[in-house]
Design a protein around this nucleic acid. Structure first.
Lengths: 257, 257
DNA sequence: CGAGCCGTTCCGTTGAGTGGACCGCATGGC
DNA sequence: GCCATGCGGTCCACTCAACGGAACGGCTCG
């Protein structure tokens, strides 16, 4: 069995493409620019090879060379990423609903889509007075410890829950649900109510309400949520708003297709 | 001389990487999914090769296979794109300023960064009652016919203006500036005032005010703008707000570095 | 002033990549 | 019913693109 890298990629690839993608995925959140030597260290690819790959990637503006000889991810990668249909269609359709929610609450709004056993955030509107949350557009979080994740999981094929359990219910905060039985029961309640609550399961002091966005078969293709401070924000009171927006978005996507 | 493709890439590449990037850049805005056959047609790459490349790209989730055998850009491309520092740092620093401008005006707000002789939109907050504009996050527009573009051009190295003129002042709307002399004069006025106006130069009925965001050397690294209907929106009245926000962002970026 | 690290270049070797040919399967016009 | 067409997918012998060890020049330390 292949080792589980965070990027879910074949390790030690001996193909050009594999090496090139290893280089690109070597960049992480804090990395502004990396030196060639650092890339060699992170990827295990030979120096001459890194140099050749980086030179060609730079010609395509997929990476950019910095004056100091370093390498940074290039603007063209951003442009390509914005064309990805899984986020483009969703974001376009969701924009007015998210704007309404934000206008009405001024709390932090999230829109996320499932990928594997995690969710990827597609949009985030940050409330000024809201709690700091580790989420980020283009970032990932496990499904079991987030409102959007649980909302999606409750309206997904049973297979997905198995995958999530097999991946392990890692603890993210003191109140993260790490017992498979509790998670199943919680998902059942969410499925009945159409709304998922999360209280300090991903971070201390943070709570949220989420609702799923469904496709024609009733499976979740996304979820949206409102997040706030646990003592200044009543998720139950926001539930109807989130649910309404999610239903609206579900309908908007259905009529688009 | 190499032909000027829109993606600015070497054509007829005989490297694996070149072929793979040709495949990725074959996707355009409207394309949800492409068939392998369509990719063969668009790229001129042999079918077996396309098949092999797509299979490997799919393993990395850079592309995804659809049930019908088609190919679409994958979520991982979106994730990578969101890490690109040129937009990430800018977007993070700009978020509060853009939010303030939007809150105060409820008109369409743009944040763009220069790349070559064009600008790439990094953020867009769409006003409900604003005019439809062709801009899109991750999209490009020429510099000479947009507010943000002119603001950037007025605070760039002279070399850039030469490049823009050499690329040609293409007409986008009846009032697009296509005379080099007029553009130079306009840029001088913009440099003096610190604000750029655009009146129906990119589209009929649309006007905007833009201001540059500068680096330590006084060169533009970005620009932001407010856009509205030409008869319901007075750009001069919004100029101080845009300029203030741009100066604030300039300062915020300076202290970050 | 030399040890160490850096980005860069060179070049002989080799196996990853290539693409024409082929398969099985829908589709659809005759 | 049947052949023509276009599709995704597979095979495999040839070949040249890619590899990486080695060497170079520049830089910064101690």
């Amino acid at each position: 069995m292949r080792s589980t890298q965070r990027n879910g990629s074949p390790d030690a690839p001996n193909s050009v493409l594999g090496r090139a993608l290893t280089v690109l995925t070597a960049f992480e959140l804090g990395d502004d620019e990396l030196s060639l030597a650092e890339l060699v260290r992170r990827t295990g690819v030979a120096k001459a090879t890194i140099h050749r790959l980086v030179t060609e990637l730079a010609q395509w503006r997929v990476v950019e060379r910095t004056p100091g000889g370093g390498v940074r991810l290039g603007i063209r990668l951003f442009e390509l990423g914005q064309l990805v249909p899984r986020q483009l269609g969703l974001r376009e359709a969701a924009a007015p609903f998210l704007a309404d929610l934000f206008e009405a609450t001024h709390e932090t709004i999230h829109l996320a889509t499932p990928d594997g056993t995690e969710v990827v955030y597609v949009q985030k509107l940050e409330g000024r007075a809201g709690p700091p949350v580790p989420s980020r557009v283009g970032g990932r979080m496990p499904m079991h410890c987030t409102g959007v994740g649980k909302a999606i999981l409750a309206f997904a094929l049973p297979q997905l829950l198995d995958d999530v359990l097999r991946a392990g219910l890692t603890r993210r905060a003191p109140r993260t649900i790490i017992a498979p039985g509790l998670l199943s029961a919680e998902l059942e309640r969410i499925h009945e109510r159409g709304v998922a609550y999360e209280r300090e399961e991903s971070g201390i002091g943070v709570t949220c309400v989420a609702a799923p966005v469904l496709d024609g078969d009733g499976h979740a293709v996304a979820a949206l949520s409102i997040t706030g401070w646990v003592n200044r924000f009543d998720p139950e009171r926001m539930a109807p708003a989130v649910r309404t927006a999610a239903l609206g978005l579900t309908r908007a996507l259905a009529t688009t297709l």
